[in-house]
Structure formats: C-alpha cells, structure tokens
Simulated scan of single mutants.
Amino acid sequence: MTEATRGWQRPSIYDVAKHAGVSHMTVSRVLNDHPNIRESTRERVLKAIDEMNYTRSSIARALATRRAMRIGVLVDSPVQYGPNSTVRALESAARHVGYAISGFSISEDDDLQIDSGVVELVTQGVDALCVIAPRASSLDLLRQKSTGLPTIVIRAEPDAAWHTAAVDQRLGAKLAVQHLIGLGHRSIAHLAGPRDWYDAREREQGWADALTAAGLPVLPAINGDWTSDYGYEFGLSYDFDTITAVFASNDQMALGLVHGLTERGIRVPDDVSVVGFDDLPDSRHFLPPLTTVRQDFAALGALALRLIIDAIEGDGGAQHDMIEPTLVVRSSTSAPRA
C-alpha cells in the first residue's frame, strides 16, 4: 500500500509491524541494527517500510519518544471552506515535522458522530487531538467527553479547558467595515453566517463594533447559511433603498448577493458596494472582482501544530493565540452613490 492510497493517514510503527507480520519490538531491533535478527525477518521489515513509503527516521523518532507521531483531527462541517482549508494547512505543517494526521469528519446533520469520532481517533493511539468544530453545538457535545489527551480547538475565543488557535475573525470584520466607512458609506448591512457558528458570531460582532465606534447605526443582521443560493435570494429580496454597502460573512454568499443585485438592476459597486470574507481562490475572478478578507490558513496550521506539540510536551497551561487577517481590496467596493 502506498501513501497515495492511504490518503493522509501515514503509518505508525505498529502499522509497519502488522504489515511485516512481526512485533513492533522487532521493527525497533531492525532499525537499530540489532545482531540477533534473522536476515529474512530483517528483509521483510525493510520491505514493509519501503512498501508503506515511510521513512526510517520518522519511525526511529517515534521509538525514541515513545509516541505514535500521529495527531487526531476531528473535523466538523468539512465541506465548508474554512474547516477544509484548516485541515489541509495542519496536515502540511505536521508532515514537515514528521507527524501524521488521522482525520474523522462530522456532518452538520449528525452530531452523534462526535462520539464515534472521538472513540475512533483515541483507539488509533494518537498523541493529541485537534478539533476543528466551528459550531457551538458540536463543541458543547465534545466538552462532555474526557479523553485524557492534549487537545487544541480551532476557535477565536480562549477556553480554559483547551489550547485554542484561530484567525482573528472579529478583526477581519472590522477591517472590512472600516474600509467601507473610509469610502464614505454610512448605512452598511450585514449578511451574517449561521448563529450556531463561532466564526459567524465573531464576524457579526466585528461589524457591529466598527459601526458603533464610528457612531453609525447597527441594523439587524440577516443570518444566512454560507451558500451562494442564500446570498442570491437576499440580493433579490432585501430592501436596498437606504443601503449603500453590504458586508457578507463569506465569499460564497457575497457571490450570490452580487448575482441577485445584478438581476434587479442594482449595480455593484456603483449602487451597492459588497465585501466578502475568506478570499476564495476564485474571488478575484468574480464580476466584479471581490473585495474580501483573507485568512492565512498556512500560518494557522503552523500555529496550531506548535500549540499541539507544546501540549504534548506538557509546556504550561492552556494557551490561546491568533493570526491576523488581511483586507484585499478589489473592484466590488467604491464610494457610495451621491
């Protein structure tokens, strides 16, 4: 079996031992050139290592530290851009320091999967857990579980029970709204994400904070579902008579919003400016190219991994750290109509 067929689950020393039909101690003796090993056994172990595309140095490190060199990742709502990008960034960061990733995905319509996900990851002998659970309901269920493992949660608010890391969602929203205010907009609506999502709450709060600081009215936010379809319906139905700008909580809803506005004959940005959040790879190709907030997922993955390793090594109590987002200004925003 090659690494390509295994996906992201790189084998541990126990996987190599099972593949070779020997004990993990035999694998250890082979790696350490122990003299009392049959040549046929040595060849079988070395062949297993080669077939599984696993480096001897990684196995040797696992033996030396008595760790599996594997991190369990529990991913809620993996089809969404943020959770998916966070997983890939963490996987890349882990690979560079010799750690493997074991993942378990939870769909939004089955919270009971959290139980089976935690059990499956723990029984794989992982050294730590990374939880990418953007929904409050999922994290509440996880809080009821006790694994005894070092755990990091990807969320923008600190938590006394776990290490936490995130991109600063509230700051990103402030940057978006401050940009619109700087252009002269005074009536800025917010197409928010689902209320159960921590990131949606943080972005909504950042929008409100920026408006309040500028002495501008905070209109009731409209909670969407992250999809471009919802943004499209919002664009078709919302009353834009006094609105000159909209901050959408993600780029997909912003895309649908621009579509809906265009069908109504409302021009972007001449009549209504639109700002998104995420900086999807295609956002620069929207018509017009979308002004948005970019999240540095590579930096988030590296930060999360550092906190995970610190937790494994027992360095201090619960830590919290965040990555600053950046505003990317494109053609979907301009000064308001006269």
Rank of each mutant, 00 (worst) to 15 (best):
A62G: 13
T65E: 14
G182E: 04
E91L: 02
G172M: 11
N53R: 06
E39N: 07
P288H: 06
P269S: 02
V122W: 12
A254D: 08
S273E: 01
R195W: 03
Q113G: 10
Q252L: 12
D310G: 03
H34I: 10
R66E: 15
E324C: 05
P289R: 05
G82N: 13
A208R: 14
L90K: 05
V293N: 02
S107N: 05
I312A: 04
K47Q: 13
T2Q: 05
E263R: 15
V167H: 05
Y81N: 06
T262H: 13
R264N: 09
H190M: 12
G317M: 10
G231I: 06
S12Y: 04
A208E: 15
R42E: 11
L141G: 12
P194L: 09
I49C: 04
T65H: 10
A4S: 07
G231S: 02
D196K: 06
T5I: 05
S283D: 03
F297D: 00
R330N: 01
V218L: 14
S58W: 07
V22L: 15
A200D: 06
V97C: 08
L139C: 04
D225G: 09
V45Y: 04
V329F: 08
Y198N: 05
G103C: 06
H96I: 00
Q9T: 15
A189W: 13
G301M: 08
F104T: 05
I266M: 04
D196Y: 13
V79A: 14
